[in-house]
């Protein structure tokens, strides 16, 4: 018993060191655990990663807008798939976050053909639109992330036409409202023509710009003019056409 007490008394300092070592080990392991946890979370939820996906989405939108502008100005509808495939090839070369792979699926239904929809010369609203679904897959160094998104680029033109017949002339007022993705948008150019005796004749009239995507165009045409044609380009160079009977 006395020996045990002597042993305890002699070993109390060593126990202190052992206890200190255990405490040091606990402090180190806890700190390293928290550090690793932060590091892991920092990678997968890094704001830069979210911004990276957002930036690719922005670039994809630009590709679609450019392709729609091309197709609406007389290009082939296939330009959309060609440009998107080209862009996907470029995205594959990025490796800031890992191996990137962008897949796209062009929307197809009764109005969309190869992801593009043109509805011109209808009664009220005329549309040039493009729609596609995308899947961005990033095989990162630590994780695999998939970001699905859809892009819709649409220019629509709502217009109405009225006229007053005075002698051998018709005073025509055309009101246009231009939208980009259902938001009011400014026009880059508006060209007005009328049809007379089977010929289309370009005419310049008075245009009032309300600076909110609304335009009032006043023209005077011969009384035999049968139709008025509006050719409108928005600020993105996307073309849309409207036709009104007089």
């Amino acid at each position: 018993m006395r020996k045990l007490n002597t042993f305890r008394a002699n070993s109390s300092g060593q126990l202190l060191i052992v206890a200190a070592l255990i405490i040091a080990l606990m402090i180190s392991s806890t700190t390293i655990y928290v550090y690793e946890l932060d590091k892991g979370a920092g990678y997968s939820n890094s704001p830069t990663f979210a911004d990276f996906a957002l930036s690719l989405k922005q670039s994809t939108r630009n590709v679609m807008i450019g392709a729609l502008a091309n197709a609406s100005n007389g290009g082939y509808r296939t330009v959309l798939s060609e440009n998107l495939n080209h862009f996907s090839d470029l995205v594959r070369r990025l490796n800031q976050f890992g191996v990137c792979n962008l897949t796209c699926s062009l929307f197809e239904d009764s109005v969309y053909d190869l992801g593009i929809w043109f509805s011109w010369n209808s009664s009220d609203v005329d549309v040039s639109g493009a729609y596609a679904d995308f899947g961005l897959m990033i095989d990162g160094f630590a994780s695999r992330v998939s970001v699905p998104y859809a892009i819709n680029a649409t220019t629509s033109l709502a217009s109405n036409c009225s006229y007053v017949l005075e002698g051998t002339e018709k005073h025509v007022n055309v009101t246009c409202r231009l939208y980009n993705e259902e938001e009011p948008a400014l026009a880059k150019s508006i060209v007005v023509s009328y049809e007379s005796a089977g010929n289309w004749i370009q005419i310049s009239g008075t245009t009032i710009d309300y600076d909110n995507g609304t335009y009032l165009i006043s023209i005077t045409v011969p009384s035999d003019a049968a139709q008025v044609l509006l050719n409108v380009w928005d600020s993105r160079d996307i073309f849309v056409q409207a036709k009104h009977a007089l």
Binding site: S55, N62, V63, I65, G66, A67, N70, N73, H86, L90
Partner: peptide, 12 residues
């Protein structure tokens, strides 16, 4: 950043 211009011909 990959920038795709909106021109009628695609330029990246």
């Amino acid at each position: 950043y990959i920038c795709a211009s909106r021109g009628l011909t695609l330029k990246c």
